[in-house]
């Protein structure tokens, strides 16, 4: 399998704050890789350097293709309220002839199950549907790599499950290479073929784990699968590296004490 993305010794520093400290990894064609790390560990900076929004202080990012697309967390700001749903999906395709643009947008909207909403404005749709529009827009662009920045962090749990399954289906059907940045351990295991675990700031690669689960996944059975549970625990432990472990006994004792104080006073 060829590599779609190669990141070599990527580092970025804002002033004297080192956000990323030398990351090296690859994403193979057709793979879905999740990057998981604690909040504020430099995941967003990583995404911004890979997407070319920020020039990294050092290292290289090479993409096997001409362009990539990004799905941002904040769909309501990423979509253009003055364009219809269809207009939004056509937004990155302006250089194409009108007929082809139309066809590609219609196709992408069908993939995410929104053919009926093409004429609506994005803000007339629910949050989950808006994020599906953003996904359709990214897919219509036919990117070599689809980057997703906490794509499902702003929707409710039910919608989140639906969108996760939609992503899995779409990328299987269209052989899309995807890199998802998330802080949610369960999500990274459920979605990923591989998980890159990052340490806190500056972000360094702690582990590169294969996900030993079949390609077909299911919200109920997969999440109770032994492999899923084991890997989730492993990632969780890895993310706690370097942090003082929580002493449950001590915490409970302190809690009891403060409670009795409140009662007695």
């Amino acid at each position: 399998m060829s590599n779609m993305l190669e990141v070599a010794d990527l580092g970025h520093t804002y002033g004297d704050h080192e956000a990323i400290g030398g990351l090296t990894f690859t994403v193979r064609a057709g793979e879905l890789v999740c990057v998981v790390g604690p909040s504020g560990c430099g995941k967003s900076t990583l995404l911004r350097t890979i997407s070319g929004l920020v020039a990294p202080s050092r290292g290289d990012v090479s993409l096997n293709g001409s362009h990539l697309a990004v799905v941002f967390q904040d769909y309501s700001r990423s979509l253009f309220p003055w364009l219809s749903v269809q207009g939004n999906v056509e937004f990155p395709l302006r250089s194409l002839p009108r007929a082809e643009r139309r066809a590609r947008a219609a196709e992408a909207l069908e993939w995410v199950g929104l053919s009926g909403a093409a004429r609506k404005r994005p803000w007339q749709l629910s949050g989950g549907m808006q994020q599906r529009v953003a996904i359709a827009r990214a897919l219509a662009y036919r990117p070599a790599l689809l980057l997703m920045d906490e794509p499902f962090a702003s929707v409710d749990a039910q919608t989140r499950f639906e969108l996760e399954d939609l992503l899995l289906r779409v990328r299987r059907e269209h052989d899309t290479t995807v890199l998802v940045v998330t802080h949610d351990i369960d999500e990274s295991v459920y979605l990923g073929d591989r998980i890159l675990v990052l340490s806190g700031s500056p972000a360094r690669l702690v582990a590169d784990l294969e996900v030993p689960l079949p390609a077909e996944r299911d919200q109920v059975t997969t999440r109770t699968d032994e492999g899923f549970v084991a890997l989730r625990s492993k990632v969780a432990r890895l993310l706690n590296v370097g942090k003082p472990a929580l002493d449950v006994e001590k915490w409970a004792a302190a809690e009891r004490e403060s409670l009795s104080e409140t009662v007695s006073s």
């Binding site: 990004v70 253009f80 302006r94």
Partner: peptide, 26 residues
């Protein structure tokens, strides 16, 4: 807003589309 600026940059839209299609309507 920043997300729209980023979105436009990622999709590498031409200059005229940036001005007439994003900045002007916004």
């Amino acid at each position: 807003d920043v997300t729209k600026v980023d979105t436009s940059a990622v999709f590498r839209i031409p200059r005229w589309q940036w001005v007439l299609g994003v900045v002007l309507p916004a």
